[in-house]
Amino acid sequence: MQSLEKEIEELLLSFGINLAIIEKWHIEKAGNSFWLTSKGLKICEGFNMQCKGLRVAEKTKLGWKPTSYFLQFFATYITKKIVEINKNELLSIIKGTPVEKNCENGYVAIRFKGHIVGCGLCKNGKVYSQLPKELAIALSENCR
């Protein structure tokens, strides 16, 4: 098994993601983020790079925040820190109004209609949206 940095291992395990699953891919740290790429990803000299692979998580004041697209990508492997919400709750958190949930403080995976839609933040029994703007807009327009 590749040696992942302890902090990313902890993040994956906290969501119940089996580390063996990651073996077929590659995770690396760049700046304040971890990125998931295919194994042996190559880059040619001379190209101006915007990004590579999928951003897994970024460092925040509260610790490592998983990205919504990463949580979607690993949806089938996530078994912990899942918060179920209904349509009205989804629309509410997207609008900026948190909803009350019985959950531990920290980042969580938001599940709606059986699908992991992205990242939320639990704080003092309330869930806040951490969905990127473009995803939040798409979901709010289309979750009906």
Binding site: S38, L41, G46, N48, M49, Q50, G53, L54, Y69
Partner: peptide
């Protein structure tokens, strides 16, 4: 970038070059 992220394409590197000027 948005489409690559949305679809979870982890084997993609996004770059911005005028391809005519590449020297490789």
């Amino acid at each position: 970038v948005s489409n690559v992220s949305r679809l979870g394409c982890i084997n993609v590197v996004v770059t911005w070059n005028d391809a005519r000027n590449l020297s490789i």
